[in-house]
Design a protein around this nucleic acid. Structure first.
Length: 427
RNA sequence: GGAGAAAUACCCAAGCGGUUGAAGGGACCGGUCUUGAAAACCGGGAGGUCGGAAACGGCGCGGGGGUUCGAAUCCCUCUUUCUCCGCCA
């Protein structure tokens, strides 16, 4: 969501930004918004003047009553009643216009960063850099679910019976490896200076609508029956929601936190669940990082944040690359975003394991997250990035450390979290 | 889950239908005194948000709604906190 003042003063820039995102159908919205905004301001001025008159007349009535001039007071009461009748209409119209403008403002995309590559859709995303050599061993790497099942580490059949498609039982050393990754990710981020946090796993609807669009909400969020509560799709939701309507002291910024949570997603309308595997599932766990900072520091943080994920995966001996989201593929709330992708030696291509975004002040405007400065309050910038989500991250580790004999070498950094174990093999 | 009480500005807190369109403290800022500080004394200010170039004005006493000429004050509702009971890792 943009600042209405910015739109008012930068109609051309806003339109150009929409074109860059190939959303030409939204172009008329800009003029409509400016027009409604003008109407609202006129109406507000009218209303304010009437309210001022009402206030002073009500005051007069008070004085007259005290002096027992009942008749004069009653006369004034009539006047104020008339003012109130006019005000009712004005207020009604204002409410309608406010809703109209909000509806439109909410779908006008955030101004993207100049550096974002222009492109229509995800096919035009741009590879930025490769880290580590993508190795293809001379033996065949089986499908990750088969590797896990062969090591007695996965039971999808039972999960199908208990919970349906999109769920899984992780068992034994595979479950432990999953947990080890999350734990290592936590400690890795703490070492980078981030504060560890376990947030609520359910949030209210007003927080949900603050952090995502309605369409996303429909397609992602599980609702608790008979309660105003939703299961979080990522801890970003509760972590950013934490600051809703808050004014942060300037000296308390930046706020850099790393949070753990299970994540629940309906995955409606996405590419569908993967029948056999663990790549796209209804439930996973994630170590996340979020940053709240001054707008001018956002780009530095953005670059730091994605590089932490790269470093994390390199420590696990997983080759990765960064892929920048082009303008057309960038979600409307985002200023700039890139995916970190891990190498799959089986598919011989990279697949998404994390996503790093800066939202500028868009989220802060929706949630009213501000910082106190000497010149008044300013919106903060919000950023988020995946450290690791598992089991998806698990797939990367398993495939890249798979041995010809069917065993998996445990990356050195994870061994302390696995009781010193160096290898997972069939018993 | 049941029963009660409460929510006022950075903090404490008065107020319970009209000179409160928020008293009084504390902290804070400015000053006097002091070599400097502390103490004391004097002075200052509603933080936020919206409209406006500004002057100024609107909103605003946990959120939302209502009654009234007029609401911090009365009514409804939601949220949160506290106390007691019940239940439970």
């Amino acid at each position: 969501m943009l600042d209405i003042k910015f739109v008012r003063e930068n109609v051309d820039k806003v339109k150009e930004n929409i074109k860059k995102k190939f959303q030409d159908e939204k172009l008329p919205l800009v003029d409509e918004v400016v027009e409604i905004d003008k109407k609202i301001r006129d109406l507000k001025l009218k209303g304010d003047n009437l309210r001022q008159e009402r206030n002073s007349k009500s005051n007069e009535i008070g004085l007259l009553m005290r002096n027992k001039k009942i008749e004069d007071a009653n006369k004034l009461k009539e006047d104020v009643k008339k003012i109130n009748d006019i005000l009712i209409d004005i207020e009604k119209e204002e409410t309608i216009l406010q809703e109209q403008i909000k509806e439109k403002m909410i779908i006008i995309p955030q101004m993207i960063d100049e550096s974002v590559p222009i492109g229509k859709d995800d096919s035009e995303n741009v590879e930025i850099e490769k880290f580590g050599k993508p190795v293809v061993p001379d033996y065949e790497i089986p499908y990750h679910a088969d590797i896990c099942e062969n090591l007695n580490g996965l039971d999808k059949d039972s999960a199908g019976r208990t919970s349906g498609n999109g769920f899984y039982y992780l068992i034994g050393d595979i479950a432990r490896l999953h947990e080890a990754m999350i734990s290592y990710a936590r400690d890795f981020m703490i070492d980078k200076g981030f504060t560890y946090c376990i947030p609520p796993f359910m949030i209210r609807s007003d927080v949900v609508t603050g952090v995502m669009s309605f369409k996303e909400m429909e397609n992602m969020m599980y609702k608790i029956e008979n309660e105003d509560l939703y299961l979080i799709g990522t801890s970003e939701h509760s972590m950013i929601g934490r600051f809703k309507n808050q004014i942060i002291k300037e000296e308390d910024l930046p706020i850099a936190m790393t949070s753990y949570s299970p994540c629940f997603r309906k995955e409606v309308g996405a590419h569908g669940l993967e029948e056999r595997g663990l790549y796209r599932v209804h439930q996973f766990e994630k170590q996340e990082m979020i940053v709240l900072c001054k707008e001018e520091d956002a780009m530095d943080w953005y670059n730091k944040m994605w590089s932490y994920t790269v470093e994390f995966f390199r420590n696990l001996d997983v080759p990765v690359r960064t892929l920048e989201c082009c303008s057309g593929d960038l979600a409307d709330l985002k200023v700039k975003s890139c995916d970190v992708e891990a190498w799959s030696p089986r598919q011989q291509k990279y697949f998404e394991v994390g996503s790093c975004s800066t939202l500028g002040d868009a989220q802060a405007r929706r949630l009213s997250i501000r910082m106190k400065t000497e010149q008044g309050n300013k919106l903060v910038a919000t950023l988020n990035n995946t450290v690791v989500a598992s089991p998806r991250g698990l797939i990367a580790v398993i495939e890249n450390n798979y041995q010809e004999d069917g065993s998996i070498l445990i990356p050195k950094v994870l061994q302390p979290y696995m009781g010193g174990k160096e290898k997972i093999e069939k018993k």
